[in-house]
Design a protein around this nucleic acid. Structure first.
Lengths: 156, 156
DNA sequence: CTTAATCCGTTGTGTTTTGGAACTGACTCG
DNA sequence: CGAGTCAGTTCCAAAACACAACGGATTAAG
């Protein structure tokens, strides 16, 4: 019986625009953006190096860096006057994307289709494996925590 | 002086292909993919509902779901025989993307350009704020942990 | 029985975004 | 001078995208 219990559907669009995930993806969800951010997090700050390491086409990277700068994620620092040259650095907002990168990398380690890669070592020496815990109750955050009644979703 | 200390640059491409972040982005980095995954994590499993909530064009969503199914992130379950109808569910791989979604949403809450949104409540009741800690040493993971000597990056 | 509506797509048609490669320009080094 | 570096820009073909319309299968309403 393909007939659902009829949910209010006027606000179909409301959820989309007022969602932090969609909002984040609007700023960093385009191709190459997160990879460029990864490079800067690694400590790579020069245009040519970023293109080289990410594989991003130069013109695309130009665009991405420009828009990331516009979003306050990247800061453009001039390091040479007379051939005007710039370095790209993460702002505080950019640095706070690192958990996203780490989460992606952990997932990629486990489920990516490429050969198994050695993961980063944490500063403690052990291979980094991140636990996600609630700041308040210190319990691990599980997938079901994303499935809340919040935002007026009828239970399906 | 725009002159770097000359680094070996033959393996410029090596890093890109052998990176778990890039690998993950190849599978879920396209537009609408993560939003569709978000919906399934929320418990929304039907085509029309997913298009409605995400705003993704139908044909694009068809593509995305197909490719996510091919990557083993989404499972297509038939729930009606004679008008053949399907539901889309996350696999284990898909469910493990939830930390990525949560990290993105936390970032979006703080830095997204839209109006401040109320965040999810955790199951403990408090507004969810996630701590990222090393599974071994239980220390918080900080941005600098991503900047390692690993992967043969010369210090810049 | 006829008409409308739901649900899940597919097709068709333009627009936008990409990717790749070549080109510019201002230097630097030997 | 000639080769090399660095950071872009420009050009163009190819791919991805958005929108709207169409379709078949079925159930609900009048």
């Amino acid at each position: 019986m393909p007939r659902s219990p009829k949910t209010a559907d006027q606000d179909v669009v409301k959820r989309r625009v007022s969602c932090s995930i969609a909002g984040a993806l609007e700023l960093v969800g385009e191709r190459w953006s997160l990879l460029a951010i990864r490079e800067m997090a690694y400590g790579v700050h020069r245009f040519d190096q970023i293109t080289g390491y990410t594989g991003a086409p130069r013109n695309i990277l130009t665009d991405r860096l420009k828009s990331l700068e516009g979003s306050g994620i990247v800061e453009r620092r001039q390091y040479s006057e007379r051939p005007p040259r710039f370095e790209y650095h993460l702002t505080a907002a950019g640095r706070e994307l690192v958990p996203v990168l780490i989460a992606l990398s952990q997932w990629g380690d486990r489920w990516g289709h490429d050969e198994p890669i050695e993961s980063f070592p944490h500063s403690c020496g052990a291979p980094l494996q991140v636990d996600h815990t609630c700041h308040h109750c210190h319990q691990p955050v599980v997938p079901e925590d994303l499935k809340p009644q919040a935002m007026g979703i009828a239970a399906h």
